[in-house]
Design a protein around this nucleic acid. Sequence first.
DNA 1: TCTCCTTAGTATCTATTAGAAACCATGTTT
DNA 2: AAACATGGTTTCTAATAGATACTAAGGAGA
Lengths: 123, 123
Amino acid sequence: MRYAYNVYEDRCPTRMVLDRLADKWALLILDRLEDGPVRFNHLRRDIKGISQKVLSQTLKKLERDGLVTRTVYPTVPVTVEYALTPLGRALGETAAALTHWAEHNMDAILAAQAAYDAALAER
Amino acid sequence: MRYAYNVYEDRCPTRMVLDRLADKWALLILDRLEDGPVRFNHLRRDIKGISQKVLSQTLKKLERDGLVTRTVYPTVPVTVEYALTPLGRALGETAAALTHWAEHNMDAILAAQAAYDAALAER
DNA sequence: TCTCCTTAGTATCTATTAGAAACCATGTTT
DNA sequence: AAACATGGTTTCTAATAGATACTAAGGAGA
């Protein structure tokens, strides 16, 4: 074992983290924050399809994990800015790798799915 | 836009893929298969805490996406071997990056969580 | 003034899913 | 005959995801 933790172990704290990061919305948020701070409703509009509740919940979890910061500006109406911490920035790159991999290899996956479904239907 | 797909768009097929990959169990399976083919029950024993149902379902999805192959050997009892495809191998590296990041940065995250919870309790 | 718009959320309800546990078929070993 | 191995499927329940509606505080327009 190279680290003090082992993600294959049940009850290892890394499992909690993996569970948190292995979340579509969390990855999209981390990815989106890579270019700098973004406000709540801006995130909501950019990440198409996310609901306010889920965005709020996910940001809260990411903040608790020390991956994003939440800064409130006493403007009217109040604006709240979310930004990556150094820890979050490191992870954001990995998140970006995943999302970009999906964009890049989409055609191959769609082809594989079509082939799989065709083989199933033929049997 | 650098690719034909954009993961920020609702209804973009990459969203389906991201949803698939943003799954704790899928990432652990891809990670575990990096060193070569592994049998069903072997996976089940190595990835602590996964149920047979979820393992079976997740493998089926990964196979449909063209990320793993399923090979049946007519031994008694039958053995079934799962392996990464070239496409899956590329993704496995990213999956490994995520799981290893979790193992490596666990202490920082636990500290952040403790600080967050302490600040909450104090308010 | 009254209504609508913005901000950033919370509350509530339902439909889907995740997970636990039991079951299945086939065949070998004890 | 009973127990164990293989690789699953079935069933049930508890937790979660997502949609929708609501909140509060203030600015702008009619």
